[in-house]
């Protein structure tokens, strides 16, 4: 779902570009308030990690393989604001250095993967944490569900953009079911990997998991 140039028309790309700028600006303020000078190294590390995790591909059939998005994982690890920034940075680097995702489509991609992906995971996770008991395994369950749902939700973001500014060649229904179906599968993989990663982190470095010990603590306790 790293949308290339020309896939969605220019006006739609511009509108989502503006929306993404606004969303990222909110997170810039939020992260500054939350983490002051430690925001950057932490988010940079998470960005690398998302970048690395996005390289773990798994086959979803028809000659393609899905890769993880990492938004939910980032959210659970560093909180929503830093996660939005980290995913955004990953998308910028991928577009400029790896030709993965178009530069004119950056706004579209940031909107789906950073804003929709992270915030939908955050909302779900927050709700689950309210309901579930305050034990470690709830964090794992919460991140599982957050990852499971946030991936297809981000894919719906894509379908929305396609509906507004994509070509009319394929009916929306067809695009929706193809995208949604694929991403439900990817979401399952993402959910397992997110939950397993979070649980392995909880067992060795629980101090690194935002979702367990909010408000965020830095890598060092300074």
């Amino acid at each position: 779902m790293h949308i290339p140039d020309g896939f969605i028309d220019a006006p739609t790309s511009a509108i989502f570009g503006a929306a993404s700028v606004a969303g990222v600006a909110v997170s810039l303020r939020g992260a500054r308030k939350q983490l002051d000078e430690r925001a950057a190294p932490l988010a940079g590390l998470v960005a690398v990690f998302i970048f690395a995790v996005q390289m773990i591909n798994f086959p979803v059939g028809a000659g393609t393989s899905g890769h993880l998005m990492g938004g939910a994982l980032a959210m659970v690890l560093v909180g929503p604001h830093a996660a939005v920034l980290a995913v955004t940075v990953v998308l910028i680097v991928q577009a400029l250095m790896f030709a993965d995702g178009g530069l004119s489509a950056l706004g579209l991609n940031v909107f789906n993967l950073a804003l929709v992906g992270v915030w939908s995971a955050y909302v779900l996770y927050g709700l689950l944490r309210l309901i579930l008991p305050k034990v470690r395994s709830s964090v794992v369950v919460g991140s599982f569900v957050a990852a499971l749902v946030s991936v297809p939700v981000a894919a719906v973001g894509f379908v929305g953009q396609y509906a507004i500014g994509g070509s009319e060649v394929f009916g929306l229904g067809a695009v929706f079911s193809a995208m949604f179906g694929t991403h439900v599968l990817i979401g399952i993989g993402e959910a397992f990997i997110t939950a397993l990663t979070v649980s392995s982190l909880l067992s060795s470095r629980q101090d690194l998991v935002f979702g367990w010990k909010a408000p965020l603590r830095s890598p060092v306790e300074v």
Binding site: P41, G44, L45, V48, F49, A52, V53, I56, F58, G189, F192, I193, A195, L196, T197, S199, S200, L201, S204, R205, L208, P219, V220
Partner: peptide
């Protein structure tokens, strides 16, 4: 291999996090 890859991801995170730290 998912389970395995998750462990790889977890270990990778901790290792890089600690190095970065």
């Amino acid at each position: 291999s998912w389970r395995f890859l998750a462990n790889v991801a977890g270990a990778l995170f901790i290792r890089s996090y600690e190095r970065g730290e």
